[in-house]
Computed example of a mutant assay.
Amino acid sequence: MSGSLTGPQKAATLMLALGEAQAARVFAQLHEDEIRDLSLAMSALGTVSAAQVEEVAKDFTAQLGQSGHLVGSYESTERLLLKTLPKERVAQIMEEIRGPAGRTMWDKLGNVNEAVLANYLKNEYPQTVSVVLSKVRPDHAARVLALLPEGFAMEVVMRMLRMETVQKEALDGVERTLRMEFMSNLARGSRRDAHEVMAEIFNNLDRAAETRILTALEERSRESAERIRALMFTFDDLQRLDGAGIQVLLRAVPKDRLTLALKGASEPLRDLFFRNLSERASKLLKDDLAALGPVKLRDVDDAQAQIVAQAKDLAAQGQIQMTDGRDDEMVA
């Protein structure tokens, strides 16, 4: 971690530097809100250099100077919390840390994608949904309400109009249910493999940047580069489509986009598209390609990226299927 540390980061560094036994004693003296805030800072701390550790803990320079850097992580934070708090409470705190940011439950809900929240709330009682929407920001509540089934949404609106002061016990019950059933599941579901995330990012790079960064990554970690390459979906991967899939894709893609994309495609991939067009349409496409002349590589990359995105959308909708290239199994 570079730059000066904030107050919470300094506290997190000191707790990690103290070690589990000493830190456990400190945790025992803290209020629950302080434990939550400190746990959040610790889990997000990352790597702290030895120089920064010495700056934060000057009284322990002799011992800490030999320890090098520290790494703040979910795992180290969880181990420290388990020294002083019940297992169930630690699990709750860690799920809150991993979930959307926000100090209160209602702040956290305000940071949840409206489609995700609406999909959960449509299965709850209208009275429960009315409480939730009355507690989140009006703009977020509006987006969620618009995504609820029409009849159900009207039930929620009527209850919100008739709503009086919500009893604290009822509010606590709704909050507890959301925390246990929704936020914990959301947090667990949001933990994605880092290589999958990077593969999606690389899919959106232009060809020059992708080649440059992947080549550099290979020098640092060949295994990571290979995993990312295996997870990426490129224009050449359209060869994994069967004939029916190619025909569906051809109907969805504008002709000028396809012509531009095929300008930079391999011969096998071009042939695959030609074979799945009528003889007349295939000839017209070949003529268009021949007449296109020199084009910018960036324009070709953009056209190919748009067609790949279209193919992914069609696969997600179940309209096309692609083999994974390793066996006969079909993946949507």
Rank of each mutant, 00 (worst) to 15 (best):
S2P: 12
P8E: 03
P8K: 00
P8S: 05
A12K: 00
M15K: 02
A17W: 02
L18E: 08
A21K: 15
A23T: 03
D37G: 12
L38V: 10
L38M: 12
S39Q: 08
L40C: 08
A50V: 10
V53T: 02
V56N: 02
A62I: 10
L64I: 12
S67H: 05
Y74H: 10
S76Q: 14
T77E: 09
T77Y: 04
T77G: 07
E78F: 00
L80G: 01
L80V: 15
Q92G: 09
E95F: 13
E95A: 15
R98F: 04
T104Q: 11
T104P: 06
T104S: 15
D107R: 08
L109P: 03
N111S: 12
N113W: 09
Y120M: 05
L121G: 00
E124T: 00
Q127Y: 08
S130L: 11
S130Q: 13
V131H: 03
V136C: 05
A141L: 06
V144M: 01
E150I: 02
V166R: 06
K168A: 14
V174G: 04
E175V: 03
T177G: 15
R179G: 10
E181G: 06
M183L: 15
S184M: 12
S184F: 05
N185W: 07
L186G: 02
A187S: 14
R188M: 09
D193N: 12
D193C: 00
H195N: 13
E196S: 11
F202K: 00
D206T: 03
A216S: 14
E218N: 12
E219A: 12
R220T: 14
R220S: 15
S221P: 08
A225G: 05
E226S: 15
I228P: 02
I228R: 03
M232E: 09
D237M: 08
R240L: 14
G243P: 04
A244W: 05
R257M: 09
L260Y: 01
A265S: 14
L269W: 07
R275Q: 15
L277P: 03
S278E: 08
A290W: 00
P294L: 11
V295R: 09
K296A: 14
R298K: 13
D302G: 10
A303F: 07
I307R: 03
V308I: 13
A311Y: 01
A315D: 10
Q317L: 08
G318L: 04
I320V: 11
Q321N: 09
Q321L: 10
M322A: 09
